[in-house]
Nucleic acid binder design. Structure first.
Lengths: 203, 203, 203, 203
DNA sequence: CCATAAGCGAGACGGTACGTCCAGTCTTAAG
DNA sequence: CTTAAGACTGGACGTACCGTCTCGCTTATGG
C-alpha cells in the first residue's frame, strides 16, 4: 500500500508544457498590466493555449495565479525557520528573504488576490494557508524561541502584535508605495522588534 | 466680472437627490458584494438613476467610490490633530477613531481601491492625498511633538517606521482578517509605540 | 380606443438601419454559404452590428431568416388570388410568380428552415403560417373556383392532392435539383392539373 | 496477383460491434433530437465508442448517417421493379413501400441531409445516387412500360413530371407535415397518375 | 512465443461559435 | 441643460463541440 496512483491514467496525459505556459503567462500578465488585466482569455492567448485547457484545470483566474505563486514559492524554497542561535539575525534573514520575494511580484498579484479575497472566504482561507500563514508562523516561532532564551520578552507587547508590526509594515508599503520594501527595511524592522521586545524592563 | 459663478445657470439644475443616491448605492454595493460587484450599471440601477447621469459626473467607478468615501469622511469629520498635552493619549484617540471609521467600510472598498491603484498611478496619488496621507501626517506630527517634549525618542527607531507600524498593522489585519481592527488594538499599538520610542535609553 | 401606441416610447428608438442590415446580411450569408453558414456571429459581423443587437430583437437565427423572408415577401407582394375568369391562366400565373420568388432564394434558406423545423414545432407552425399556407390556400381557392364554374372537376382527384402535386414538385426540385424550377415548369404543371382535373369524364 | 486484398491485414481487425453501434446511434440520435442533435461527439458517446473510432471510418456525420440509411435500406431490400403485368398495381406497390420506409425515418434524417446537401455538391450527388435516383428511375421505368403497353400515355404530360408528382408530393408532406405519407396516399397518387396519363384522349 | 502493427477506449489539446453580461456612448422625450 | 430610459458597438465571460493528438490496452498476424 505504498502506491497512491492506482488511477488507470486513461486518455491523453496532461501537457506539462501547457501547464507551465499558463502559469508563466498569468504572472507575466499580472506584472505588466495589473490584476485586472489578468483575464482567462488573455492568459490562454498569451500562453498559446486553448481557452478550455485553462478552464479544465483552474476554475477561475485566482486559482491560476495562486498556483503560479505556489510554484514560484516552491522554486525559491528557502526553509523558513533556521536557527543560528542569534534570534535577531534569524529574524532579519527571514524578513529580508520575504521582502525580496514579494518585490519580485511587484505586489500587484498579491494585492489583487487580497482584494478578491475580501468577498471570497474560500480564497481568503487559501491565501492564509499558502502565502500569509506560513511566514507568520515562522516569525512567531522565531520570536517565541527568543523569548524562551531570554533574548526577548513579550511582557509589554504580545508577540502577535510584534508579528503584525513586521508584516503589516510590508503590506502597507506594498499597497501604498510610500516607501520601498527592501533589505534596509528588514534591518530597521528588526531593530524595531528588538526595541519593542527587549527583556531589560525599564522599571 | 472675474467671478466664475456668474453663470446664468440655465437649464435643469443638477439633482442633489441623484448625487446622493449614487454615492449611497456605491457604498452599499461595495459592502454587499465586494469591489468587483461595484459596476457602473449596478450603481445606476441601485440608485434608480440613468446610467448616463453617473457617467456625466464621475468618469469611472473609482471616482464614485472615492467621492463616497470623502463624503463619509466629511460627515465623521473629527479633526485629526488634537493636543491634550498627553501624546500617548492623543495617539490612542487618533488610532481608535481611524480604526472605527475603516471598520465601518469593512475594508472592502479600501482594499479594492488599493488593488486598482496598483496599476493606476493617478488613482494611487489621489488615494494618498485623500485617505492615506492626512492620517499618516497627523500621527507623524503627533509623535514628533512627543519627541520635542521629551515624552518620546526617535533615536533607535525613525518616526516613519513607527507610523508604518501603526497603520501597517491596521491594513494587514484589514486585508488578512486574522485579527480584528478595534479600540483594543488602538491601545495595544499605543503601548507598542511607547515601548519602541521610549526616551529612557537602555544604555 | 383608436390609438394602440400608448407606450411612452422612452429611451433611444430602435435603429432601422441596424434592422435592415441584419436582415440583409442573413439573406446574403444564407445564399453564399448555405444555411449552416448562417451564424449569429456572422450575421452581426456582416451587418456591422453588435452581437447583442441581433439577440435583442431575434432569439435565434431562424427568427432572423424568417423575418428576412417575410420582408422580402412583403416587398414582392403580388396579390395571390387574381381572377381573370380563366382559371388555368390564373393558376399558371400564381405558380410562375411563386417559382420566381423561391428561385431568388436559391431554396437554401427555405430548405434549411425546413430541416430545422423538423424538430421545432413552433418554427414549423410559423413556416406554415408565413410561407407554405398562404400560397397553398390561394391555389386551392383558385381550383375550387374552377370546379364551381365547371372548368374543372374534383371527382377523380381531390383538390388537396392537386395542390400537393403543384407545390410538391416545386419542393422536390428545389431540394433534389434534378430539374429547374422555372416558368416552363409552371406551364407544365398547369397542363398536368388540367388533365388531372378535367371535367369531361372519360366514361 | 490479381487480387487487391493481398494486404497482409496486420493488426487488430475492425470491430463490427463498434460499426453497428455507431450506425445505430446515428439513427437514434437523429430521430430523437433531429439532425442538429447529430453530433460526432454525441454519436461516439451514445455508441459507447471512442471518438477517434468514428473519425477513422467516417469523415463527417453525413457519412455516418448516409451509411446508416444504406444499411437500413439493404435490410428492407425489396426489389424496386416488379412486373405483375398491371402497371398501376406495380406503381401503387412501389409507392406504398417507399412511403412506409421514409415514414420509418420520420423524414428528419433525410431532410437534414438534404439541407446539408444544398451547399455540398458531393453530398448532393451521393444522395441522388443512393436515395433519390434509384426509386425515381424505378418509377420512371414502370411508367414507361405502361406507355409501351398502351396502358398509359405520355402525350399530354411528360413522364418526368409524372414522377415528380409522385415523389414531390411525398417530400412536400414530409417536410411540411400538412398531411400524412401513408398507404392511402399511395392509392390516391396512383389514381392521380392514372388520370394524368390515361391513354384515351378526350378528343 | 513474442515482435510488430493496427484498432480500440479515453480524454487532453488548440480552436471557434455559442448566448449572456457589462462597458461606455448615443439618442430620444420629459422636466 | 439635466434627467430616466434604453438602444447602440464592442469585448470578456464560461460552455460545448470541432477535429487532432497521444496515451495504455487489446487483438490479430508472422518471423
Amino acid at each position: 500500500m505504498d502506491s497512491t496512483d492506482d488511477s488507470p491514467v486513461r486518455g491523453r496525459p496532461r501537457s506539462e508544457t501547457a501547464r507551465r505556459a499558463v502559469l508563466h503567462a498569468a504572472l507575466q500578465l499580472c506584472q505588466s498590466g495589473g490584476y485586472q488585466a489578468l483575464t482567462m482569455k488573455a492568459i490562454a492567448e498569451t500562453a498559446g493555449v486553448g481557452r478550455q485547457t485553462v478552464y479544465r484545470w483552474w476554475p477561475a483566474k485566482q486559482d491560476v495565479l495562486l498556483d503560479a505563486l505556489r510554484d514560484l514559492g516552491l522554486r525559491k524554497a528557502e526553509h523558513l525557520d533556521p536557527d543560528t542561535g542569534d534570534t535577531l539575525f534569524d529574524v532579519r534573514a527571514l524578513l529580508a528573504a520575504t521582502f525580496q520575494l514579494t518585490d519580485l511580484l511587484t505586489g500587484k498579484a498579491l494585492v489583487g488576490l487580497m482584494a478578491e479575497a475580501q468577498h471570497d472566504p474560500e480564497l481568503s482561507h487559501r491565501l492564509q494557508a499558502t502565502v500569509i500563514g506560513p511566514r507568520r508562523e515562522a516569525l512567531r516561532a522565531m520570536l517565541a524561541r527568543g523569548v524562551a532564551r531570554g533574548e526577548l520578552s513579550d511582557r509589554t507587547v504580545p508577540l502577535e502584535l510584534a508579528v503584525d508590526f513586521a508584516f503589516g509594515t510590508m503590506w502597507y508599503r506594498l499597497i501604498s508605495k510610500h516607501a520601498p520594501v527592501d533589505t534596509a527595511l528588514a534591518g530597521q524592522i528588526t531593530t524595531g522588534l528588538a526595541t519593542m521586545l527587549r527583556p531589560e524592563s525599564p522599571v
